[in-house]
């Protein structure tokens, strides 16, 4: 079996995958990115490179991907539908593939209202569902989005998508996941899980439909640094659910950072041991990338599987 990427190989050989996230900086130096990449290199199978997350201008995900690869980590290039029309998307995909990037994560993107350019125009030429489908067709049928044939060297991405079990309508979230799987999503990363009970209900529905056998679901987790951060997510980020107990637990902790890490490790272990159908974990250590090795190690997920090239 030929794998499109190392991440695919990790997942399809039955390993519990670990992915992390690197947020590119708001300036033109990749020093910080490279530092983080070096640090987490041996602890993750691949790392997401966010695409101007929360609509804030940063080094592009593909350019950052070059730095990350150079440091020895396989990138998962995030591509939002917010900033590019189908022409620019494909141009970037061809470029990313030519640079050796093999994982592509398709998502809608946060509305520009929240970013540092709220007066800009958004694109949304295609939506995330359509993007998944079109990237798959590009790979499997050698066709541009327009249907025109790609004569040679079509990009062959391992296609990812996101799912948010905490958004509404809850009943439709699994339906939408199914649509994404139908469209061609081979792996799914979820929004940060804090409400474990709701995630379990979500996974139950996923298993009922057998979706976990058709795609690889990676559970999203985020180590919290402070109760204020938790509170902020609880009340200001649409599509997030942060139970009050978590806020309180951090608030009453002597060392909130340590408590945040402990909590994250508990969550990962719980997911790994108790929730069937989850094939990995996606650790989003927002502005706290240096904590990744400790989390991975303490969850018993180190060392990561190695494969011959």
């Amino acid at each position: 079996m030929k794998y499109l990427s190392k991440l695919q190989q990790v997942l399809e050989t039955g390993n519990f995958a670990v992915t992390a996230e690197i947020g590119p900086p708001k300036h033109a130096s990749a020093e910080g990115v490279r530092h983080h990449a070096h640090m987490m290199k041996d602890y993750v199978d691949a790392t997401n490179i966010t695409d101007c997350q929360t609509a804030i201008v940063r080094i592009s995900s593909i350019a950052t991907g070059v730095h990350v690869m150079d440091c020895g980590i396989e990138p998962i290039v995030q591509m939002t539908c917010r900033d590019r029309n189908r022409i620019a998307m494909q141009a970037d995909m061809l470029g990313a593939y030519s640079l050796g990037m093999r994982n592509l994560l398709c998502l809608s993107g946060d509305h520009q209202k929240f970013g540092n350019h709220p007066t800009s125009k958004n694109v949304y030429d295609v939506d995330s569902m359509q993007l998944i489908y079109l990237v798959k067709r590009m790979r499997d049928e050698k066709k541009f989005f327009s249907g025109e044939e790609i004569k040679e060297h079509e990009p062959q991405f391992f296609i990812g998508a996101v799912a948010n079990p905490f958004a509404d309508p809850f009943e439709f979230r699994v339906d939408r996941l199914e649509k994404k799987v139908e469209a061609g999503a081979q792996f799914i990363q979820t929004q940060c899980i804090f409400d474990m009970e709701r995630f379990e209900r979500f996974m139950e529905m996923v298993r009922e439909r057998g979706l976990h056998e058709r795609t690889h679901i990676l559970a999203g987790v985020t180590p919290l640094k402070s109760w204020r951060g938790a509170k902020y997510m609880q009340s200001n980020v649409s599509g997030m659910i942060v139970p009050e107990e978590i806020v309180q637990r951090l608030k009453s902790a002597e060392d909130p950072k340590k408590e945040g890490v402990d909590l994250c490790i508990e969550q990962i272990n719980y997911i790994k041991d108790n929730i069937k159908g989850v094939h990995g974990v996606h650790v989003m250590a927002i502005a706290w990338e240096e904590i990744i090795p400790e989390i991975v190690q303490r969850c018993g997920l180190y060392p990561r599987p190695k494969f011959e090239d």
Binding site: D110, V162, D168
Partner: peptide, 26 residues
């Protein structure tokens, strides 16, 4: 839909509202 999505709702839909504002229906 503030993102003109044809296969919604996106992950920003919560309590029937759009991520851009609590005054905007999803």
């Amino acid at each position: 839909c503030s993102k003109s999505i044809l296969n919604g709702p996106c992950g920003g839909s919560q309590y029937g509202k759009c991520e851009i504002s609590k005054d905007t229906d999803c």
